[in-house]
Design a binder for these strands. Structure first.
Lengths: 389, 389
DNA sequence: TTGAAAGCGCTAACAG
DNA sequence: CTGTTAGCGCTTTCAA
């Protein structure tokens, strides 16, 4: 961690200049235009849906122009641009120079249509509202980008119908593969994926048998593990506080694992409250207040559907003067940074989100190369003891 | 908020069944396969980069097959599928029925290549690590999806070189437009966008003159506004705590606005500490400890580079028994939910992130329809008084 | 309201 | 190592 002398901000010259020009604002205009192509805005011609067509005015240099400039055939230019050493070094250099000269940007639509590999990967996530899926996506994008693939994104909002439509839309781009964190796939959704005949990775969850491949953890086991841990710590009156669980099957699986494991050791879930709406810190905060108000006999531990909810619960305790874990113990799920940064670090389960993303990418890339990786990859979870339970 | 009786979890039957089958696991196998196409895995033939080619075995029904099945020409089928009423209702119905029958999924690569509108939008963000860009992306994706567009994503990690490479990669898919939250665009990046001749929305920041369009807020003004507010509240010894600011130009602009406004009213920034690495709750927590330890004379207010950092600062205060705002006042930036859910809600600036996403989509969609929206759209910020300063 | 012809920009397959 | 030929699946003309 580089720390700078107080009262002074270390900036390199260019940073200072940038701020300078921000203040003066107008000389920030881009002056870079070494190409003869001008950025024009004639109203474009429209198709029947009032969408502009690809008119000739939008046209960019093509491979055949590059080839002509380099004095080779189109296919040689194609090979030179793609690398692979099928072309004499001198020729390849000439082609690449010509391409640079003309500001050539390959058209992958054409390349893919003509039989090249796609290099797009469809990604469907149920939400971006908590950092969980953002973390997964980050890991995924990172590995894909590194391998030259681009994610094409869709958010299902936990809506099976929207999920189905997204799958169809993404498939229309003929991606090389699909990564999906299923909300609750319809039969039609599964059929679409199956018929597409491309690698599909279902992420987050390994409890169900996947269509093709799965990467994630067992949420059922995660719930069970937490129950065993907490029983071992001596808690007796257990409560659960969750968000709209009917659309979040993974949270539901954790709950069922938790409840089931309690049952096996002769305990029960004394109180179980689920609130409508997506999980959030506020929902956890307000929900805990409500749960405690409604309790006939107060619980000594509350298991939350995730860390967002649990952090909210913790904030309620702070505000209400409830000592944690003295008066009430709390446990979450995910192992988010925020939970561990709390003055009293949260007892929770680390869900290895980034690993899910990178592992999904690995599976996919391996399949793209013709490999046949394991069908199910369990990245595992880790119980974080913390200090709230 | 629907709250269920305690001790009992409301589940619809299907949810119960789903969990049931999770527990039994194996009968979860998909049984849906009403198509004759079998999901096979012959090792595919490879191209020179060892990437599977689009072999005939992967082939899906084409428009011409649909046309044949419906007894019309290809172009009529094309028009029928795209709607627009250029085809007799009866014909269109016949075509659509045939398409459904054959499980036809249009090939948009071919459609776009042939001159149809693209319906992909390139999106480049610097990070997904804090929820800020996830919020923007969510708003953006939502509107785009609704209008039939798909975002193609790239994450630059605040790296100008990677940003440049991403722009080129995305352009190779010939998207209908680009949305970019610039890290620090190189001359080459700007030139690429300019030459592409397509709608480009630069988001987050409206301080600089955009290449094409800009949607965001003035971070300079946001910093200034906070300074004025805090001076008005009577604070006198100001400190700043930030993350690696040389790569986050917007945080830098806020700092400069803050510092500048202090200067104008005869105050100064007594202490200014920037830490390497991306912003995080822990960085804020540890950073504040460090800042206070290093201070010759303790500040009475700390302005953080954003809410993540400020929440971390708050946690440090809680853990160290520093009363907020009594002993020390804190202010952040972004207006994240977590800051407002704190036992003492954070003084901060709401940055309207979802609005930035939806507004960027609106601008883009309007341009796609041939409109010429304003070049700069300032969605504005709002100072949230909170109770920490 | 429908169709025929032509071609988008690229790559595979086969030749030399 | 390089080139020729023939499409990929769709949409745009232009014509009926």
């Amino acid at each position: 961690m580089s720390i700078l002398p107080s009262g002074k901000l270390a900036l390199n010259d260019s940073a200072v200049n940038r701020v300078g020009s921000m203040l003066k604002s107008d000389d920030h205009k881009p002056k870079i235009c070494d190409s003869p192509v001008i950025f024009t805005h004639d109203a474009p011609t429209m198709d029947e849906n009032n969408i502009p067509k690809n008119t000739a005015s939008n046209r960019r240099p093509t491979l055949s122009q590059v080839a002509a400039a380099a004095g080779v055939s189109e296919i040689t230019a194609s090979r030179a641009m793609r690398g692979g050493g099928l072309v004499a070094k001198a020729t390849a250099d000439r082609v690449q120079a010509a391409a640079r000269e003309l500001n050539y940007v390959p058209n992958r639509l054409a390349g893919t249509l003509a039989g090249g590999a796609s290099r797009q990967v469809g990604v469907i996530l149920p939400s971006l509202s908590n950092s969980v899926f953002a973390d997964v996506l980050k890991g995924l994008e990172d590995r894909l980008e590194e391998a030259g693939y681009q994610p094409v994104l869709g958010i299902s909002n936990y809506d099976p119908t929207r999920e189905e439509r997204l799958i169809e839309n993404l498939l229309s781009w003929r991606p090389a593969g699909i990564v999906i964190a299923p909300a609750d796939m319809t039969a039609a959704s599964r059929a679409l994926l199956l018929r597409a005949g491309l690698p599909v990775v279902e992420i987050m969850d390994v409890d169900a048998t996947p269509t093709d491949m799965a990467v994630g953890i067992s949420h059922l086991s995660a719930g069970r593990a937490m129950a065993h841990y907490l029983v071992g710590r001596g808690y007796e009156r257990f409560a659960y506080l969750g968000h709209s669980i009917d659309s979040d099957l993974r949270a539901l699986a954790r709950l069922e694992g938790f409840r089931g494991a309690l049952g096996e050791v002769g305990r029960e879930l004394a109180q179980c409250l689920t609130l409508a709406g997506p999980s959030s810190v506020n929902l956890g905060r307000e929900g805990l207040a409500r749960l405690l108000a409604e309790a006939e006999q107060p619980p000594d531990l509350v298991y939350f559907s995730n860390d967002d909810m649990a952090v909210g619960g913790m904030f309620h305790c702070m505000a209400a003067g409830i000592s944690v874990p003295g008066d009430l113990a709390l446990a979450g799920f995910n192992g988010l940074e925020i939970g561990q940064a709390l003055p009293v670090p949260l007892t929770t389960t680390a869900s290895n989100r980034a690993a899910i993303g990178t592992e999904a990418a690995r599976q996919l890339l391996q399949r793209f190369k013709g490999g046949m990786p394991e069908k199910i990859s369990d990245v595992g979870f880790r119980l974080i003891p913390g200090q709230t339970a």
